[in-house]
Design a protein around this nucleic acid. Structure first.
Lengths: 131, 131
DNA sequence: TGTAAACTCTATACTTGGTATAGAGTCAAG
DNA sequence: CTTGACTCTATACCAAGTATAGAGTTTACA
């Protein structure tokens, strides 16, 4: 199948598919006589796998690692698990950070209840003084 | 004061300060005879304000808007408040997304309790089939 | 006074994960 | 046979910086 159909089937853009090829996430496919990329069903499966990993916010490098690990069924899956564990950790940290940020923002926001003038705006005063 | 001292006082890198100048967040300062940037105390205050806004995850464009609003004390502070409200909203969404992601990751991770081989690894099977 | 270290300057390239374009070639339908 | 849809490569762009090269400047110390 050609790249347009593959894009439609995966829900990824054509440019994204070519981008993944450049990044060596997806093997360069066969070419037709007129130099069009020609993909197999395996490429489709691989892309769906990649898409799934991206949805889990894995970086391209991490996905590459997982794909390499997966390529040999006799490999230990240890570094796949390590990758997931690290993600869970990172996300936990990020959520905690965002919660603090959220509270700070809400607290700042409460300093100006209405549409006032700049010189009276508690939000701006807060922004000036917190640091 | 020269850029190195300003960087030390603000905790920003020299490159970041020059970057903010290029982005028009910080006015281009006077220059010495030898073309070195020479900053006032006001520049220091402005940078600390910017740093504070960045810590609240505002984009450079948003900060620019806030700075422009702030410049005239008679302005209405409405769009400052709007900016903050939008942020609170964005962060709420992001936290919700991350929580879903976290749960998904934890559920996937539970499919492989130990260091197994790739072919037996539940995590990899999950990654294959969820999409 | 000499010189070496520390500082600053501009300009450019790199990062991540794509997205958007230009300009050229190819293919299918009417 | 031409028009429109598709594909190709190469390049530039986004945010928010970071890192480097190569040149000039200032400061400290002997």
């Amino acid at each position: 199948m050609k790249i347009g159909l593959l894009a439609a089937k995966t829900g990824l853009s054509i440019q994204t598919i070519r981008f993944y090829e450049r990044k060596s996430l997806l093997a360069a496919p066969e070419r037709t006589a007129s130099n069009y990329r020609s993909y197999s069903e395996d490429a489709l499966k691989q892309l769906l796998f990649i898409k799934q990993c991206r949805a889990l916010d894995m970086t391209i490098e991490e996905i590459k690692l997982v794909l390499e690990t997966r390529a040999n069924p006799e490999n230990s899956c240890e570094n796949v698990n390590t990758t997931i564990d690290k993600h869970v950790d990172d996300i936990e940290h990020r959520i905690a950070e965002l919660k603090v940020l959220q509270e700070t923002l809400i607290s700042i926001r409460s300093a100006c209840d209405h549409d006032k003038k700049v010189k009276e705006c508690g939000v701006l005063h807060q922004l000036d003084s917190i640091a």
